[in-house]
Amino acid sequence: KPGPLPPNLDDLKVSELRQQLRIRGLPVSGTKTALMDRLRPFQD
Rank of each mutant, 00 (worst) to 15 (best):
K1V: 03
K1R: 00
P2W: 09
P2I: 15
P2S: 15
P2D: 15
G3W: 03
G3R: 13
G3Y: 11
G3C: 01
G3V: 14
G3L: 12
P4H: 14
P4Y: 15
P4D: 15
P4L: 14
P4V: 14
P4G: 09
P4C: 11
L5C: 12
L5A: 12
L5V: 13
L5S: 07
L5R: 05
L5T: 07
L5D: 08
L5F: 07
L5W: 00
L5H: 07
P6A: 12
P6W: 05
P6Y: 06
P6R: 08
P6K: 10
P6T: 09
P7W: 06
P7N: 15
P7G: 14
P7C: 09
P7K: 15
N8C: 07
N8P: 04
N8Y: 10
N8S: 05
N8V: 12
N8L: 07
N8K: 10
L9E: 01
L9A: 01
L9W: 03
L9T: 02
L9C: 06
L9Q: 08
D10T: 10
D10W: 14
D10Q: 10
D10H: 07
D10G: 15
D11R: 10
D11T: 14
D11V: 12
D11Q: 12
D11L: 13
D11W: 05
D11A: 14
L12F: 13
L12R: 06
L12K: 08
L12Q: 04
L12M: 14
L12E: 06
V14H: 06
V14S: 05
V14P: 08
V14C: 03
S15Q: 08
S15A: 14
S15L: 02
E16M: 03
E16R: 01
E16Q: 09
E16C: 06
E16N: 01
E16G: 02
L17F: 00
L17D: 01
L17V: 03
L17S: 02
L17M: 08
L17A: 03
L17Y: 00
R18Q: 10
R18F: 05
R18M: 04
R18G: 01
R18W: 01
R18E: 10
R18L: 05
R18T: 06
R18C: 14
Q19F: 12
Q19S: 08
Q19L: 09
Q19V: 04
Q19C: 05
Q19M: 09
Q19R: 10
Q20K: 07
Q20I: 13
Q20H: 13
Q20L: 13
Q20V: 04
Q20T: 03
Q20F: 11
Q20Y: 06
L21D: 07
L21N: 09
L21E: 05
L21A: 12
L21S: 00
L21R: 01
L21M: 07
L21Q: 04
R22V: 04
R22K: 13
R22G: 04
R22L: 06
R22Q: 00
R22P: 01
I23N: 05
I23G: 09
I23T: 08
I23L: 12
I23K: 10
I23C: 07
I23Y: 13
I23F: 06
R24T: 00
R24N: 02
R24S: 01
R24G: 01
R24D: 04
G25C: 07
G25R: 06
G25Q: 07
G25D: 08
G25T: 04
G25H: 15
L26P: 02
L26I: 05
L26V: 02
L26N: 05
L26Q: 04
P27E: 09
P27H: 10
P27K: 11
P27T: 06
P27L: 02
P27V: 02
P27W: 00
P27I: 06
P27D: 14
P27Y: 01
V28C: 15
V28Y: 10
V28G: 10
V28L: 11
V28A: 12
S29V: 11
S29H: 11
S29N: 08
S29L: 07
S29G: 13
S29Y: 11
S29K: 11
S29A: 11
G30A: 00
G30L: 01
G30R: 01
T31D: 14
T31A: 14
T31W: 00
T31R: 07
T31C: 12
T31G: 09
K32D: 04
K32W: 02
K32Q: 04
K32M: 02
K32N: 03
T33D: 14
T33C: 11
T33S: 11
T33K: 13
T33Y: 12
A34T: 11
A34F: 00
A34Q: 03
A34R: 03
A34L: 02
A34I: 07
A34M: 08
A34P: 01
A34E: 13
L35F: 03
L35H: 00
L35R: 01
M36N: 03
M36C: 05
M36T: 08
D37S: 01
D37G: 06
D37T: 05
D37P: 00
R38K: 06
R38V: 02
R38A: 03
R38G: 05
R38Q: 01
R38N: 02
R38F: 00
L39I: 05
L39H: 03
L39Y: 04
L39R: 01
L39D: 08
R40E: 10
R40G: 07
R40N: 02
R40D: 03
R40A: 14
R40S: 11
R40W: 02
R40P: 07
R40Y: 11
P41L: 10
P41A: 13
P41R: 08
P41V: 11
P41I: 12
P41E: 14
P41G: 11
F42N: 02
F42K: 11
F42V: 09
F42H: 14
F42D: 11
Q43W: 11
Q43F: 13
Q43K: 04
Q43L: 12
D44F: 07
D44V: 13
D44Y: 06
D44G: 12
D44C: 07
D44K: 15
D44T: 01
